[in-house]
Design a protein around this nucleic acid. Structure first.
Length: 483
RNA sequence: GCCCCCAUCGUCUAGUGGCCUAGGACGCCGCCCUUUCAAGGCGGUAACGCCGGUUCGAAUCCGGUUGGGGGUACCA
């Protein structure tokens, strides 16, 4: 066994969703493993708890990792291994610990433990330590923690962390039914798999002295530990599944690009040391140092993530952008009738939308008016732009002007045409375009208007102007006005 | 309660005793550009929690304090 090769591990338990915090841990482990030629990133699915073990959840883990750029086929990737496959080894180790006197059987119930505690600050009091109980029903196996001294964890991020052994209780390593607990299984697996670096969330820091004691009891030198700061919400609490938006898949669905997500996540707690933020994976991978990771908790700032994402979207070529938008333009996701969608029209409008979307899903709201049978209904926009003093006149004039066959149906001439129409009404283009925009797109804000008109086509545009005029006439006559 | 971790702009961070009248990014606020909205350009707002030390000198070292957070299972 040579110990020179870096072997990191990522050990999620399958829960049906992939936490952004896990994503960051995976990324850090991946970067470190890839820094050395023979480095390995070991994926181990911690499926000890039979209740939460479904094959499709493991699939979910693998595809989430893939989305992040951690591919099974990469030579640095090893696994997946399943903790359940090592159950025999876990039991064997538990028995060995018992035989060697490093662990002992205990028949105390939870109730008994609690009642007997003379000091409520401490946990189990070691009541069964020297009772010499044989294994049997109702008897759990506890690890014998030294009474004196302390256990020092050398953490790459936090430095030296010392735990007084007196504050560590004799913890259970195997249940009464013989099944191993996380504390044991995790260590046995890490030992078995030759893990050299354990990089995981800070919530595991308090388990670490126990695990380190176990490593030593098994005759091994502990690995390099690194406990990442927790990722918190706006209230500075650890991001939780039920309260916060933590599932990687959610972000994926909204149209965050994996490269933006990866970049953002890498920078959560780590910085390359200069003023760079947006950078390719290859660079982050090269620059990453575990010891450079910050030790204080980090707020998951979706606003900044969005900014990163916008940055990455704008950096795409138009063709790439069109490709990437595709999943959001499908019948399942898009609101327009499938037959209305026109590939070429979309490709033509795409560059105008590219600077306006922060996440890919926003593409829909930008281009929908081109493919919907009618403009969207947005009351606020209507109320804002369709003032009775200007809108009817403006729309009527535009309708007429657009009917002129000598008017080239093309953005620049449409612009000057509308400019003229506006001037005749005493309106600058900013004011003049508003009613037309709302009549055609339904909204007061949107893509550049004249390109939009050009792509929609003369007749559809005129049709929408007429419809708007009709609607204006109706509301004007009194019925249902709300102003 | 007990154990452990943490502490620089609102947020993510740079900073490792003098280069700091504290830098960058996101956000926010102006201005420019402009057919709306973005994008882009320019400028601005804003921080070393507090108290003691150490030192010629402290955001940087030490102690305390306060405030956050994590862990306290026969869960992972």
């Amino acid at each position: 066994m040579t110990e020179t090769v870096t072997r990191t591990r990522f050990a999620p338990s399958p829960t049906g969703m992939f936490h952004v915090g896990s994503a960051r841990s995976a990324l850090f482990n991946w970067a470190l493993a890839r820094q050395s030629a023979d480095g390995r990133f070991v994926l181990r699915v911690e499926d000890t708890d039979a209740a939460r073990n479904k094959p499709e959840w493991t699939e979910g883990i693998i595809s989430a990792l893939e989305w992040l750029g951690i591919h099974k086929e990469d030579p640095h990737f090893e696994g997946p291994y399943f903790q359940s496959d090592y159950a025999g080894k876990h039991r064997e180790t538990a028995e060995r610990l018992a035989e060697e006197g490093r662990a002992y059987y205990c028949d105390c119930t939870r109730e008994m433990v609690r009642q007997r505690r003379d000091n409520p600050h401490l946990g189990y009091d070691g009541f069964c330590r020297d009772r010499g109980l044989e294994p049997g029903p109702g008897r759990a196996l506890r690890f014998r923690v030294p009474d004196d001294g302390s256990t020092v964890v050398a953490d790459q991020i936090r430095g030296r962390v010392e735990f007084d052994n007196a504050t560590i209780e004799d913890f259970v390593v195997a249940r009464a039914d013989g099944s191993p607990l996380f504390a044991l299984a995790n260590v046995v697996d890490d030992v078995e798999m030759g893990i050299t670096h354990v990089i995981r969330g800070e919530e595991h820091l308090s388990n670490t002295p126990k695990q380190q004691l176990l490593w030593r009891a098994l005759g091994q030198d502990p690995p390099v530990w690194a406990h990442l700061p927790v990722i918190v919400n706006e209230k500075r609490q650890k991001l939780s599944k039920r309260r916060d938006k933590v599932a990687l898949e959610t972000y994926q669905d909204e149209g965050f690009l994996p490269e933006a997500m990866v970049n953002y996540l890498m920078l959560l707690g780590w910085a390359p040391g200069d003023d760079r933020e947006i950078m390719p994976w290859s660079q982050m991978e090269r620059l990453f140092r575990v010891s450079d990771v910050n030790s204080s908790s980090a707020f998951f700032d979706e606003q900044k993530l969005r900014a990163f994402n916008g940055e990455y979207i704008r950096a795409l070529s138009v063709d790439e952008f069109v490709e990437r938008c595709r999943p959001w333009l499908t019948p399942e996701r898009a609101p327009w009738p499938e037959k209305n969608f026109d590939e070429e029209v979309f490709a033509a409008i795409a560059p105008l939308a590219q600077t306006r979307v922060a996440v890919l899903s926003e593409i829909v709201g930008n281009v929908d008016f081109l493919f919907l049978d009618e403009p969207v209904e947005d009351e606020r926009s209507w109320a804002k732009a369709m003032k009775p003093e200007v809108a009817p006149a403006m729309l009527t004039a535009a309708l007429e002007r657009f009917a002129d066959p000598d008017l080239a149906w093309e953005a620049t001439s449409l612009k000057s045409a509308l400019e003229e129409v506006g001037q005749a009404q005493g309106l600058k283009l900013g004011k003049a375009q508003a009613p037309v925009r709302v009549a055609v797109t339904g909204r007061t804000v949107g893509l550049p208007l004249f390109e939009s008109l050009e792509l929609l086509g003369r007749e559809p545009v005129r049709e929408r102007l007429r419809a708007a005029l009709t609607k204006l006439a109706e509301t004007d006559s009194g019925a249902g006005t709300d102003s």
